[in-house]
Design a protein around this nucleic acid. Structure first.
Lengths: 138, 138
DNA sequence: ATAATTGTTATACTAAGTATAACAATTAGA
DNA sequence: TCTAATTGTTATACTTAGTATAACAATTAT
């Protein structure tokens, strides 16, 4: 599952949870989104560790939002489900970490991609689950 | 080869060509960059079709820059070597292209990613091969 | 003719992504 | 205490994308 797909899938699950007071189990969420229940559990388990959702094991268990939608930021969701930086881009890393022209071009691109990275992070920090809910509701 | 690796590899090749008046063949370029000659030919062939490099077949053939470094933009290089849009991100596309909440969330992310896309393109349009050469030379 | 070269296709292999299943651990309720 | 429902995690099988290289027809200078 690509980083961007994980992100959109997580948001779908969180939007669904926001519509319900009672906990929803992974099968219900999975069916609503159209994705496998194991996968949704893997994602929501991570969101649980970051304190975005609450999960209860056992009978009558399930998932529910642990915070208000206006206090859940896209950036926070992303960090919860992904280890590496958002939309990480690579350069062809040469063996030498010296100072050849190839090394310096790699550095140039790493800097450029890192700038892009920061811009994306800033953009995501400004977006809350609440604002997404407002945009998508009709 | 990922989009970002193709881009950095192409720039390495173009920088190398800019240092030389005489055409360089794929073996020389490949050895300088530390990559397979076939691969470099695949990339430079595309850059040739976009008029960024000139390629001559046959004995004493090879590759050379077809334009001044100040007239070669990163965006142009990217478009030459890549069909799809830069750093394309996906959402989990549901079967229905209807108007379910999942569909609307997909649209939200497609819009967001498209904004990011435009910002990256603008950034790349401002960067010329000449400016990269200046930055990396010592 | 010959040798060097590009442009393109093909091959073999590895890594990443996708979809799903399996099951121990946990918990509510009979 | 037993049972059924549930999470959290690991495992499996399969498909797709990425990586590295080779092969060879077409082209061209000598």
């Amino acid at each position: 599952m690509s980083a961007s797909t994980k992100l959109s899938t997580s948001v779908k699950a969180l939007c669904y949870l926001s519509e319900n007071d009672k906990p929803k189990n992974s099968s219900e969420i999975a069916e609503h989104i159209g994705i496998n229940a194991s996968k949704i559990r893997m994602l929501l388990s991570k969101l649980g560790k970051s304190g975005i959702v609450r999960s209860d094991s056992g009978m009558r268990g399930g998932f529910s939002l642990a915070k208000d939608p206006e206090n859940i930021h896209l950036q926070e969701i992303y960090c919860a489900i992904e280890d590496r930086k958002a939309f990480y881009l690579n350069v062809n890393n040469t063996k030498s970490k010296g100072n050849t022209s190839s090394d310096r071009i790699n550095l140039f691109f790493l800097d450029l991609f890192s700038e892009v990275q920061i811009e994306i992070e800033n953009k995501m920090t400004d977006i809350t689950l609440k604002s997404i809910l407002n945009k998508i509701k009709q």
